[in-house]
Amino acid sequence: MAFRDLVERFQSKVFSIIYGILRNHNDAEDIAQQVFAKVYFSIRQFDFRSSLLTWIYKITVNECYDYLRKKKVRKLVYESDFSEDDAHMMENSGVAIDPNMPIDESLAHRDLAVKLLGKISEEDRNLLLLKEVDGHSVEELAGMTGMNENTIKVKLFRARQKLVKAAQRLGKVPGRFELGL
């Protein structure tokens, strides 16, 4: 596959992953460019044990977290970045967020999600993102990673446990939810 084909095939996917985490168009595009530059230079390291998408996904999420670490971004969306268009788009999307949920709360959830995912291992983080954000099924994840379905289930269970423990350590309880922790 020519590199141009690879970029054109995965650019929307990569951009949507980054945009989902950062919610800033310019930053998301910069990081997407960086992801493909990294893919270009390290394509020889791809060992075909997982799918190309899984490998690119891993690079993408790592780049996002590197960016967040470097910039020390704690708040995902600053008030200055949060335009009325953004608010309108989020309120009307109905995909990711409960439309009845106040915007402040959904921002708090995203902030919490990024923080908690930053506290668990890269493998657990990628698996949870592929499952919850990208909506892949256990069967699809098994096919993508080359593991069997039971292994994926166990890994997901452990990742979720670690996420809950990370939240307990942070003392974070999402506003709308009663976690019973």
């Binding site: 951009f15 989902g20 009307n92 995909v95 967020i97 959830h109 995203r110 954000v133 996420l163």
Partner: peptide, 18 residues
């Protein structure tokens, strides 16, 4: 209950309209 809640928290990272 906790896992259900945090599952929804992680889902909040889905981009609403890219």
């Amino acid at each position: 209950s906790a896992m259900t809640s945090f599952s929804q928290v992680v889902r909040s990272l889905r981009a609403p309209a890219v």
